[in-house]
Design a protein around this nucleic acid. Structure first.
Lengths: 199, 199, 199, 199
DNA sequence: TCCTAAGCGAGACGGTACGTCTTGTCTTCCA
DNA sequence: TGGAAGACAAGACGTACCGTCTCGCTTAGGA
């Protein structure tokens, strides 16, 4: 038994994955056809269907690999990991994102489909917050944190709250949500914005 | 001449918009065809093309309306709006999300395309953080903030940082990014998690 | 109601039929692809499938037309038609074959496919001859030969003559062919059909 | 050198031939795939291509065998064979058809494909008959009917009889069929061939 | 009796055609 | 004039076969 894995097959899979990412980065997920992928990988179109049902499955298989790697690196969360400033696990998400940056770009920054909208909204919120912060924080204030980093962080937190709110049928009013957001954001703001601001 | 806009036309536009949203919620943006939309609106397919070039444009026109409304409500950011706890503008994003919740769901929670991936990643990060917080925060700790709200907020902020980082060619290392995130998150954590934690 | 039949459609059907015949004569039925047909007809491949399920159906629709014409020309077999030397119906099969000689060649001489058609035609001719013989031969007549054996024998002989005629470029008119057939068949008929029939 | 042919090979060839015929009778020539054949024969698909280039060649090889047998049985047409009522060669076509009735059914009654074979068989019979007639009819004989017209007519009649015989489950022996054919053909032959021939 | 080449199974691969689906354009007609 | 109906071109989809190929296993028959 123990069929030899046929080295050809593994090579083919790798070629397809690479071609997909390359093509997505070039023209966007929706615009990529199976033909594009196989052309770019120098394979026959039928060969694609030998291994995957459609291009979504190919993308998913790549993402699954990446995701499994992420989970494995995190491992079981150690009890006190979170607040300890120097625990190495704090690096995991960012290192992981950097290593798989092509795949992250493909998904997080997608300019197609509804993902584009989400990105548009977050960017708008970030720039809107940026302006407000600009006004609220004296230019003199401590440069401990770049303003657009701060703005994006807050915008991302807000979007996440809204998503969670609309997804779960959590019984909160818009006002309660706004208050929660304020409570969550205020400690950070007070730290990085001018501390002379009123409560 | 300046013909009257023909009330029929407005009705047709509205029918198309509503049909699109209904269909997206039912089967997801990608799976919706122009035929689906016009069938659902009881219109001919050709009629669709009288008003829009393609379904993306129809979606965009709906989103543009929604978005314009958001911008208008925010208006010019008043100088001191951000930190003032009770400024009414703090409600705007959440009220807006609630009013247009169908459209928000369509975009933020999409189960299709690459948007699904982003959501998957954020959910994973949120649950991972949730576990860590669970461990870090004594059950006794102040119930001021539901744990999953906190977890989602932090996960959203992290994703936003990563997106911003990969998009801009900002010259930061993964380590620097991880540190920034820690600095941004720590004040909030110290506020809502057990304050006896070290450092 | 009564939608106008859209002249375009009729033209399209004709183009497809002509293209099919031309391509079959050029490379044989099996080797003809739908793409070949639509290319030759200057139409889109999808247009083909708007009107026919597959190339067999297109061929069948052509043959059906041809066949209906043949049946109509024969009409109801007149009682004494068969042995009467100069009855005009004796010309029908040969004239018909000549008019539709392209289609006949496609089916009778085909180096590929469509044996079904030949069998269909022979069976039709045999049953037609059977009816005529039934009328011409008194039931009392000698049972030396089953009627359907006789009918099939004659139909086979006729088809063979037509095949040979259309294949060889033998310089005979339809009338000459019909006469030859009559001469070949008459001795047999006189033997097995009622001998009181006129010469 | 010159290894002996490995008994397995012969077995494989037989398996393939049988599987082809069985499958054709079941679903028609066109619908049979190489996979069907090898599945039915319990062989690998690659094995098929070890022995034949394609399924047509496999069919042809079977038909060739059958055909060679037919030619051999006829042998050289004896000069006076044709009109002699009891010459054994008159049985050959019908006996042959009966023995190979599966293959005959496949080709003569096929609802799909292989018209080419039927034409080949008829042409062979016609030319065989032509030679016999040539011998039987004194060159001096009446030119009332071209010999090849006569030969094709008779061959067509014979094929039609065989088709009818194999299709209907008519309870006739090969001998009875041969006699019927002789009775049907004789009047015509006596009219157009030298009348001095024995009955 | 071994051993060696043939026969064979398995399955990856490139290729071609299939029949289906959707898109966007266009034309004709109706209300 | 807005809309309905539907023909059409274009092109991607996923499926089905084809014929080729490489890789090992098995086994018959010659040494």
């Amino acid at each position: 038994m123990a069929r030899r894995p046929d080295r050809r097959k593994l090579r083919t899979l790798r070629l397809l994955r690479d071609a997909l990412i390359a093509q997505i980065l070039e023209k966007g997920y929706d615009a990529v056809t199976v033909q594009d992928i196989t052309d770019h990988a120098n394979l026959g179109r039928a060969t694609f269907y030998l291994h995957f049902d459609n291009k979504e499955e190919l993308l998913m298989s790549s993402l699954r690999e990446m995701f499994d790697d992420l989970k494995e690196r995190f491992g079981v969360p150690p009890p006190d990991s979170f607040l300890a400033g120097d625990h190495p696990s704090r690096l995991v998400p960012f290192q992981h994102a950097f290593e798989y940056r092509d795949l992250y770009r493909v998904t997080l920054l997608s300019q197609q489909g509804t993902a584009a909208i989400v990105n548009g909204i977050r960017e708008y919120l970030a720039s809107n917050m940026g302006e407000r912060l600009q006004a609220a924080v004296p230019a003199s204030a401590n440069g401990k944190m770049p303003l657009d980093v701060l703005a994006n962080y807050l915008a991302g937190g807000m979007i996440a709250l809204i998503s969670w709110w609309l997804k779960s049928s959590a019984p909160y009013t818009a006002e309660e949500m706004a208050d929660m957001f304020r409570q969550l954001a205020l400690p950070t703001l007070l730290t990085f914005a001018d501390s002379t601001q009123p409560r």
